[in-house]
Structures are given as structure tokens and as C-alpha cells.
């Protein structure tokens, strides 16, 4: 493990190709009610139903390990929805159905035998608006390890909390007031606290849904720097509104438009030489 980490730091380009998650032919429908059925048949059925919103249409994406993958696209294009497909957060929305195949290290995460609770421990998530629990800073970070039973004793837990806060680059700011409520922090600090909270369960993939959209430029810069750091350990997927941000932090970029994945590839290529005219229009600001 240690060797792998060192290697990834010295030679990031080679690590990019280690496949972490894979999505094939993913469709997402809203307003499907309690309908069930065979996966293939259901997708066709739902797609034909006028009352059902077809939010994601046949998307294929590969998420590589130790890479930042950015999802970009205009509002309502389905990028956030697709992000929530990756840790089955859509399960909590009534009437939402996902078809197709999504794997994490080769295992189908939509298999009926998979417990979404276990999955989400491996695929953590950070949300658009900082959402610290109304608890102390310590308890916020300790929440995940506690429910998953990751620590054997108190000292251990304190250790995990400190490490997570350090990793989220907020330790120095809060180390003296771990008992203060998390809601009392500034917006940027709250968001880094939420990242620390997500990191504390030692996930393999970290999903970030527009993590900077409610932050000011300085806080945004801090979080972006943090994302770049996190890449050394986790596979990070970030949804962003800002193309500059995607260009700054990501190695891979996926462009979504009207529920379709229009283009997916190396960030450099997407921003300099997009192959699809729609991507170009978006990047140059003509649609959006």
C-alpha cells in the first residue's frame, strides 16, 4: 500500500489507468412509481412512458483510481443525478429507477445482494451546500467511523478524527474547539469539515456535488487545493458548474447535455480540442 502511494505520487499518469468504477448503459427515470421488472425490459417501458422523466440516457463512464474526474454541463443536464447513481443516493428518492450496470472494482453495485449502506461507506459523498450535522466538530467527523465501527476505542477514534481533519486541511483551524458546534464555522470551513467527515470513513471513491458553489473565491481556492491533495489517495469525482474549475482540478472530464453523455476524455483534450460540436459550444459559452 505504502509503495503504491509513493508510486502514485511520483508517477501519476500511470495510475490514472487503474479502473475503479465503471458505468455501462445507465438510464435514470424519475416518477416511475413502484414499478419493477427485468432491467432491460423496464428501461424500454419507462422510456416509452410519457409521465416518466428520462433523466439519464444510456451513459457509459469509466472512473479511474487516483484521478479527479469532472462532470460538467448546463443546469439540468443530469450530471448531479449521475453522480448520485454512483453511490445509490437515488435510492432515497421516491419513484427513481436506475437501469444499466455500474460496477465498483468489478462488483455490480445495483445487485440486489448489495447493501447500499456498505456501498456508501466505500463511495463517500460531499454535497453542494455544506451540511454539517448540528453536533460538535468532533462528533461530525466521528459520525461515520462510529456507525461503521471503524475504531476499537476512544483514542483510536480521536486518532481517526484528527487524521481526517488534517487531511481536509482544517485541523489547524479547529483543533482548539473540537467541542464547538460544526454549524458555527464559516462556509468554507464547514465544507472542509464535511470533506473531513466523508474522508473519515476511509472511502475509496469520493463524490463531490458542486462542492464550491456556495463558497467565496478564497474558500473555493482552499477546497480546490484540497481536492488536488485528495487525489493522491482517493478516486475523486466532482460535479462542477465552473469550467475553469474543471480545467484546474480534473484529469478526466465528462460533458453531459440533456441527459446524454456527449463527450468523455482527458480534460486537456476536452478543453482544447473537443470532438463534439456541442461540447465546443458549451465551452465557448454559446450554450449553457
Amino acid at each position: 500500500m505504502k509503495d503504491l502511494n509513493e508510486m502514485s505520487q511520483t508517477d501519476q499518469e500511470s495510475a490514472v489507468d487503474v479502473l475503479k468504477m465503471q458505468a455501462r448503459g445507465v438510464d435514470v427515470f424519475y416518477g416511475a412509481g413502484g414499478r419493477t421488472g427485468s432491467a432491460a425490459g423496464m428501461a424500454a417501458d419507462l422510456a416509452a412512458d410519457k409521465n416518466v422523466t428520462h433523466a439519464i440516457k444510456g451513459v457509459d463512464v469509466d472512473i479511474a483510481d487516483k484521478t479527479v474526474t469532472a462532470f460538467i454541463g448546463p443546469s439540468g443536464c443530469g450530471k448531479s443525478t449521475f453522480l448520485r447513481v454512483l453511490n445509490r443516493m437515488n435510492d432515497t428518492i421516491e419513484g427513481c429507477r436506475v437501469t444499466g450496470k455500474v460496477t465498483l472494482e468489478g462488483e455490480d453495485i445495483y445487485d440486489p445482494n448489495v447493501d447500499p449502506v456498505q456501498l456508501r461507506a466505500k463511495v463517500g459523498m460531499v454535497f453542494q451546500k455544506p451540511n454539517p450535522f448540528p453536533k460538535s466538530i468532533f462528533d461530525n467527523v466521528a459520525y461515520g467511523p462510529r456507525i461503521h465501527g471503524l475504531s476499537s476505542n476512544k483514542a483510536d477514534l480521536a486518532d481517526i478524527v484528527e487524521r481526517s481533519l488534517r487531511r481536509a486541511a482544517i485541523w489547524n483551524e479547529v483543533k482548539d474547539r473540537l467541542d464547538a458546534p460544526g454549524t458555527g464555522l464559516s462556509g468554507g470551513q464547514q465544507q472542509r469539515l464535511c470533506i473531513a467527515r466523508a474522508v473519515a470513513t476511509s472511502p475509496e471513491v469520493l463524490l463531490m456535488d458542486e462542492p464550491c458553489s456556495s463558497l467565496d473565491p478564497i474558500a473555493t481556492a482552499q477546497v480546490e487545493e484540497l481536492i488536488d491533495d485528495l487525489r493522491s489517495r482517493y478516486s475523486v469525482v466532482i460535479v462542477t458548474h465552473s469550467m475553469q474549475q474543471a480545467a484546474r482540478v480534473s484529469q478526466k472530464t465528462a460533458f453531459f447535455h440533456l441527459g446524454n453523455l456527449v463527450e468523455f476524455g482527458d480534460t486537456d483534450k476536452i478543453f482544447t480540442n473537443p470532438s463534439d460540436p456541442r461540447t465546443e459550444s458549451y465551452i465557448t459559452g454559446r450554450i449553457g
Binding site: M1, D115, H148, L150, V199, S202, E204
Partner: peptide, 25 residues
């Protein structure tokens, strides 16, 4: 360098551990 991930052994998604089963109950 100690890493958090080292403490949690790799587990398959298909192998629910005792703790998760307890939580689900």
C-alpha cells in the same frame, strides 16, 4: 505513514459483515 484505509481490510460488497447485518436488523 499510517493510512486509514489500512485499518479497514478490503471487503467485497457482496459479503455483508456481522456489523452491517446487525445494523440492518
Amino acid at each position: 505513514m499510517s493510512d486509514v484505509t489500512q485499518k479497514a481490510p478490503k471487503r467485497s460488497l457482496f459479503a455483508p459483515d456481522a456489523r452491517t447485518q446487525k445494523r440492518n436488523r
